[in-house]
Each structure stands twice: as structure tokens, then as C-alpha cells.
């Protein structure tokens, strides 16, 4: 494991970067306005980043070659998506997801 000072400065750096992302719009927009082009570009960030972070978990990387499928994550995603559609509730979705993958691992030994 890396040293705790490395961990601490990584936390601090990430914290400052994140904090600035959070507060700068509040500070700047007291005086200025974003151009409509930038706002339009940023409007795609939430769906793009969330789907990217999901899809990355469905593949196993082999640099230079086609990825293989991460079957447990892919199979666990199905009931998870279904529970999101039905419940529209984040907590229910997370619980169903965890139980699904736990079931695949513990019961089916995947």
C-alpha cells in the first residue's frame, strides 16, 4: 500500500479540485454569465459520465486487444436496471444491484 502522506496529499489535491469545481460557478456567476455554447456542452456531462462509468465496468481491458465481457457485472446490471425502472429510487436500485452481484458470487460461484 502507498504511504499515508501520499494518500493524504492525493485527498487534499482532489478535495481542492472538487471544491473549486463546486464554488467557482457561485463566485463567478455573481458577476458573469457562461456562454451558451459552454452550457450546452456541459449539459451532456451528467448522462455521458454516468453511462461511461457504468459501461467501463462491463468490460475487462486487454490493452491493444478487444475487451472481454465482465459477465458477473453484466448479469447483475439487468435486475439493477429493472429495479431503477420500476422503483425510480436510488436506494432500492443500489440494494438490488448489490444483492444481485452477491447472489451471482455466493450462490452461483461466478
Amino acid at each position: 500500500m502507498v504511504s499515508s502522506s501520499f494518500v493524504f496529499f492525493t485527498i487534499l489535491g482532489s478535495g481542492i479540485a472538487t471544491w473549486l469545481s463546486r464554488i467557482m460557478p457561485f463566485v463567478i456567476l455573481k458577476k458573469f454569465q457562461l456562454s451558451s455554447g459552454v452550457i450546452e456542452f456541459l449539459s451532456f456531462v451528467p448522462i455521458a459520465i454516468m453511462s461511461a462509468l457504468w459501461f467501463e465496468n462491463l468490460f475487462i481491458q486487454h490493452l491493444g486487444h478487444l475487451p472481454s465481457l465482465d459477465m458477473p457485472n453484466l448479469l447483475a446490471s439487468l435486475p439493477t436496471v429493472l429495479s431503477a425502472l420500476i422503483s425510480k429510487n436510488l436506494l432500492v436500485t443500489v440494494v438490488v444491484g448489490v444483492i444481485s452481484l452477491g447472489f451471482l458470487r455466493l450462490v452461483l460461484g461466478m
Binding site: I47, S51, L53, T80, V81, A84, N89, L90, G97, V98
Partner: peptide, 10 residues
């Protein structure tokens, strides 16, 4: 991953 799926859907 499940949280991303849920947040994406919402």
C-alpha cells in the same frame, strides 16, 4: 455501479 445506473436513469 448500481448507483450510476440509478442516477443515470433518474
Amino acid at each position: 455501479v448500481a448507483m450510476f445506473i440509478g442516477l443515470l436513469y433518474l
